[in-house]
C-alpha cells in the first residue's frame, strides 16, 4: 500500500478475520458435514428419550413426584415450592411447552455434566490445562450467541438437536469453572492426610476431592441450568420448540399476551429448577448431623414405619446399625 500512514496504520493494514472464518467454515461444511451430522445422533437419542418421557407422564403425577423429590432433598418448604410452581405452569396453560423446554434443558445439563465435570477435574489436576481452557471458556460464555448460531445451523441444520448444542456451548462454562474451583479448594490438610494413608490418585478423587467439592459442583449445576433456560429463547430462532418459541412468536406478531405467558412459564420453570438444585447443594453442604439421607423426608416416613414394627423402641443409634 502506497498511502501507509504511521499515525493511522489501520486504514491500510487489516487482518481479514471475517473472510478466514468464512472460508474455513465453507471448507468444514463441504468436507466434514457427515461428521457433524453423526454428532447429532447421541444428542438426539437423549433428547427424544427425555422428551417423550416427560410428555407421557400425566401432569398430576408429575407434580406429586416433583413435590416428593423436593421434600426429600430440601424439606417441606422446597416440596411445597415445587408443587406450587408446577401447578402454576399448568394453570397458565403452557404445560406441554414447559415439558419440551424442560427436556431441552435437562438434555443440555446431561451433556454439560458428562463433558464439563471431567474437564473441570482435568483443570484442577493441571495448571497448564486450566491456562489453555480458561480463554476458551471465556469465549464460549461471552461470545454473543447469534455469532455461533449461524455456523451451528450450517453444520448441524436446524431443530431441537442443534438447539441443545448451542445451549451446551453457552452454559457449560460455569460447570467446568466451579468443578475446578471446588476441587482446588479442598483443604490441603485433607489432601495430605489422604496421601499419608496411601490413597492412589483415583481414590483421592473419588473418596476425598469429589465429595468435598460436591457443594461447589452443585452450584455449578445450578448455574448451568439457569444459563440454559435463558439460552432456549435465543435457540428458538433456529426452530427450537417449547416456551422459547412462544416468546419468539409473541414478539414477532407483537402479541404481548403470548410472549408474556411464555416468559412467565420460563420464570416459573427457572424457580422450580433453581430451588431444587440449590437444596441439593445445601444438603451435601450440611452433611446431615447423625442421620442418613433416607432417614428424613417422605422416605424417612416409610423407613421409620418399617423399622418401628419389628423394633418397637427404635432409637437413632440402633437404626443406623
Amino acid at each position: 500500500m502506497s498511502d501507509f500512514n504511521l499515525l493511522d496504520p489501520f486504514a491500510s493494514v487489516r487482518v481479514p478475520v471475517g473472510s478466514w472464518v468464512e472460508s474455513s467454515l465453507t471448507f468444514l461444511v463441504q468436507n466434514f458435514r457427515d461428521v457433524f451430522r453423526s454428532i447429532r445422533w447421541p444428542v438426539d437419542q437423549v433428547l427424544s428419550g427425555i422428551q417423550s418421557g416427560l410428555l407421557s407422564v400425566p401432569p398430576t403425577i408429575f407434580i406429586i413426584l416433583a413435590a416428593l423429590i423436593g421434600w426429600q432433598v430440601g424439606g417441606r418448604r422446597i416440596g411445597a415450592m415445587c408443587a406450587i410452581t408446577l401447578t402454576m405452569i399448568g394453570l397458565v396453560g403452557v404445560w406441554n411447552d414447559a415439558m419440551v423446554t424442560l427436556a431441552l434443558v435437562l438434555t443440555s445439563l446431561f451433556f454439560c455434566a458428562a463433558i464439563g465435570i471431567p474437564l473441570g477435574i482435568l483443570c484442577a489436576a493441571s495448571n497448564r490445562t486450566e491456562a489453555i481452557l480458561r480463554p476458551v471458556l471465556d469465549a464460549m460464555q461471552t461470545l454473543p450467541a447469534f455469532v455461533y448460531l449461524v455456523p451451528v445451523v450450517m453444520l448441524f441444520g436446524i431443530g431441537n438437536v442443534p438447539g441443545v448444542m448451542v445451549t451446551i456451548i453457552f452454559s457449560i462454562a460455569p460447570l467446568v469453572r466451579l468443578t475446578n474451583l471446588g476441587i482446588r479448594q479442598v483443604p490441603a490438610d485433607k489432601i495430605e492426610a489422604a496421601r499419608a494413608f496411601g490413597c492412589t490418585p483415583r481414590q483421592m478423587l473419588l473418596r476425598v476431592q469429589m465429595p468435598l467439592a460436591a457443594p461447589t459442583i452443585m452450584a455449578g449445576v445450578n448455574q448451568t441450568l439457569m444459563l440454559s433456560l435463558s439460552m432456549v429463547v435465543i435457540a428458538s430462532m433456529i426452530s427450537v420448540g417449547g416456551l422459547g418459541l412462544m416468546v419468539l412468536q409473541g414478539i414477532g406478531r407483537l402479541d404481548m399476551g403470548l410472549a408474556s405467558v411464555g416468559g412467565i412459564g420460563l420464570v416459573l420453570l427457572a424457580i422450580f429448577l433453581d430451588r431444587l438444585t440449590q437444596a441439593m447443594g445445601e444438603r451435601t453442604n450440611k452433611a446431615a448431623p447423625g442421620t442418613r439421607w433416607f432417614q428424613s423426608g417422605p422416605l424417612g416416613l416409610i423407613f421409620r414405619a418399617k423399622i418401628s414394627k419389628p423394633v418397637p423402641a427404635a432409637t437413632p443409634q440402633s437404626q443406623t446399625e
Partner: peptide
C-alpha cells in the same frame, strides 16, 4: 496431624 485433617463427609 496438628489440624486433625478428618474427612467432614
Amino acid at each position: 496431624f496438628q489440624s486433625f485433617a478428618l474427612m467432614p463427609h
